[in-house]
């Protein structure tokens, strides 16, 4: 069993496809004013960062997923992704 380490967690929350995204739509409509064209599909979301002390990456990812599913995202209208980053010697786990 590995000794507990601190893991850095990033949760990204987005509105599900088909759910109205006024922020994204408004940003998209503003872009031509910059002289930029051809940019479509702008979606706004939220990003949350926190640290978790856990035995390993799998445990950290499991806890981060609970936070994402139970609090940070409302599954009726939103979807989320959780990324756990550890020390320089380990590889990130995405879920």
């Amino acid at each position: 069993m590995a000794s507990p380490s601190t893991f850095s967690v990033v949760v990204e929350v987005r509105l599900r496809p088909g759910i109205a995204d006024p922020q994204g739509a408004t940003i998209e409509r503003a872009l031509p004013a910059l002289g930029l064209s051809g940019i479509t599909g702008v979606r706004a979301g939220k990003s949350f960062r926190f640290d978790i002390v856990a035995d390993d990456e799998v445990a950290a990812l499991a806890q981060g997923t609970v936070v994402a599913d139970r609090v940070l995202a409302n599954p009726v209208i939103e979807e989320s992704s959780v990324t756990v980053t550890v020390t320089a010697t380990a590889k990130p786990v995405a879920g």
Partner: peptide, 17 residues
């Protein structure tokens, strides 16, 4: 009540912004 799971569904932003 929807967030608490006492009622189904969710309230999203109004159509028409």
């Amino acid at each position: 009540l929807t967030e608490a799971g006492l009622l189904p569904g969710a309230l999203q932003k109004n159509r028409g912004l």
